[in-house]
Every structure is written in C-alpha cells, then in structure tokens.
Nucleic acid binder design. Sequence first.
DNA 1: CCCAAGATAAACAGATCGGTATACATTAAG
DNA 2: CTTAATGTATACCGATCTGTTTATCTTGGG
Lengths: 188, 188
Amino acid sequence: MPAISKREQIVSEALKLFYQFGFTATGVDKIITEAKVSKKTLYNHFKSKDELVLATLRKRDELFRNNLMRETERLGDSPRAQLLALFDVVGDWFNEKTFSGCMFINAAAEFSDADNPSHIISAEHKRLVCEYIRGIASEAGASNPDELAKQINLLIEGAIVDAHVCGNKSAAERAKRMAKVFIDLALD
Amino acid sequence: MPAISKREQIVSEALKLFYQFGFTATGVDKIITEAKVSKKTLYNHFKSKDELVLATLRKRDELFRNNLMRETERLGDSPRAQLLALFDVVGDWFNEKTFSGCMFINAAAEFSDADNPSHIISAEHKRLVCEYIRGIASEAGASNPDELAKQINLLIEGAIVDAHVCGNKSAAERAKRMAKVFIDLALD
DNA sequence: CCCAAGATAAACAGATCGGTATACATTAAG
DNA sequence: CTTAATGTATACCGATCTGTTTATCTTGGG
C-alpha cells in the first residue's frame, strides 16, 4: 500500500482540473494523464466519471469546511469575532491565484437539475456550512441563531459571486461590513 | 425576410438549451435540431460555437435587464419602493419552473478564466445591473448611492445562489428584509 | 520461489464533438 | 426568366468523448 493511494491521486488531480476547467469540459483522459495512472485503474476505483465527480465533490467539501473551521477559529478568539473572521477567511480564498469561485456553485451551474446527485451534494455542502455558522451564532448568544446564520451565509454567497464573476477581490470586506450590522442587531 | 429570422430562432433555442443544460454539455447538433435549421445556416450566422455563446449571452443580458427594469418600475412607485421591488422581481424569477440560476454565474462557472470573452460579458452584465440599481439609489437620495447599490447587488447575488443551489425559493424574501436595513441606513 | 492482486500501456468500441463540403431546393429582385 | 442569395439535408472530416478489453509488468505475502 503506497503512502498516497492511487485513488487519492486521482481525486486530487480531478479536484484541480474540475475546479479550473469545469466538470463537463474535463475529460477522463486528461485526469489520468495528470494523475499518472492508467484508465483501467481509474475505472477500478470509480464505476463512471459521474462517480468520480461525486467523490471529488465530497473530498472538496471535507477540505473546504475543515479549512474554514480551522482558520475561523484561529482568527477569532470569541464567537462574535469568529462570525466576522469568516469573511477574512473567504477574503483570503478570493485572493488565491487558483480561485475559480465556489466549486459547488459551479457544480450546480453544470448540473442544474435539482435531482442530480452532484447538485444534491452541493446543496448539502451549503447546508453544512450554514449549520457551522449557526453553531457559532448560537454560542455568541444570538437572539435567533438560525436567522443570523442564514443572513451571514447569504452575504458570503453574494461575496463569492462578486469575487468570481466580477473579479472583485474586496467583496469579502463589503460583506463583512454588512454582516457586522446584523451581528450587532442579533447580539442584544 | 421572415417575421422571425433564422438567426433569432437559433439564439432563442440556444438560450433555452444553454441555460438548462450548460454551455459545454449542449452540442450544436442539439441546437440545430431544436431550432429546426441546418448546420450550414448556423455556421452562416456564427463563425463558431463560441460566437453563438457570446451572442446568446448578449441576448440574455438584454432580455433580463429589460424585464428587471420594466417589472421593478411597475411594482415600485417611488425610488425607495423600487429598491425593494427588485427583490420581488427576482423572487418571481426563482419561482419560475425553468429557473436554473443566473445564466452569467453559470457562464462564469464554465468559463472560469477571467479573460474568457463569455466571462467578460458576464462581468459586464453584473456591472450593468449594479449601475441600474445605483441610478435608483441616487434618485432615492441615498447618502452613498454607489455603496448602497453594491450592497443590494450583493444581497441579490446571494439570494440567487441560495435559490438555485439549495432550492430555497424564499431566499429573495430574506434578502429583501436585509436590504431594508441598508436602505433605511442610507436614506437618513 | 510463487502466485495473485493490482498496476501498466495501448488498442479498441461506438458515440458525439465542432466544423466543412456537396448537391439540391426555395425565393425574391432585377 | 434569370440569377444570386439563402435555405435545406446529408455525408463527411478528424478529434475527442466515456468506457472496455487485452496482454504484459510489478510487487508483496505466504
């Protein structure tokens, strides 16, 4: 058993390629070339390209939320500070040179049907992020943690779109200023 | 010259197909079949599929903004009411059964490179919508019309994402409640 | 050493991709 | 009527798509 399994190699490269070039536009031949595995190996691990897309989205969700939680808790020393720190974390993300929007928004764009498994996973990712925010809002003593979380989540989504479509790297700062208003309203 | 030109037929069908199934996933063969034209005719009017995509996005921008402006001005009898009516217009859009998110967010997802012509058109569309909002904010007497417009625009983007990815049809209502806070702050 | 598991490269299949070419039909203007 | 433009259908091109097959190589455990 190698340190990095073939399966992980494949998912790792698929992550980069799907994110940068899109799901439909990225062929399996490109993925196996970059991952340096044979086509047989890919189809040993995944029944189809669709299955690989799902596995890739699940991995992305894991990596993204782990990073979001780690960085948010590192930058914010109180629940209130953490709610604001969320915007600093996504702001840093916008400035990464590989930033290509939110992979789950992108997936929903390509797999528009709400019943599509990739679309469902994308919705689930958004739900989990929102749930994480709700937990912090609750700790912060918000009058209505669920509502505050949904407000903050909506501001983050808007900032992501502005950053990606319009290239507005300061979108997170505006969203943060807006969030502050709702946080102040919700905390006493 | 027919009442509806061949070119318009092609763009009209391309609009539906690109919007529902995505740009890369929709082949020109599918478009010509639906538009009931020959492939030669398509390539007489458009040099390439890429050119057709651009023409389709330009048409979508025209239709979308015309509808947004018409409905906003119909539903709101004052600049302040119009700023709020924006959210009613997009709320109705979310509830259309053909709703598949924002075509320009979708385009940016598939054509992630900021230099891609389709991406550039998408950014331009967002800029024009924001400019329209700024005009209303200005009429309303906002202290900083540009900032208010960008705030409202960000809320709209967030609502679109929530509506499409998570299927949250009431996203526009939350965004509207949030917008009210900033409108009240900006109009002394 | 031996063997099975899992890897490899490469050919192949059948469909579809964007785009071109050919040959014929329709149509409207001079 | 004639002609030029524009339409049609269809065949074709080479490339690429997802997925399968074949035949060979590597490797670790008993």
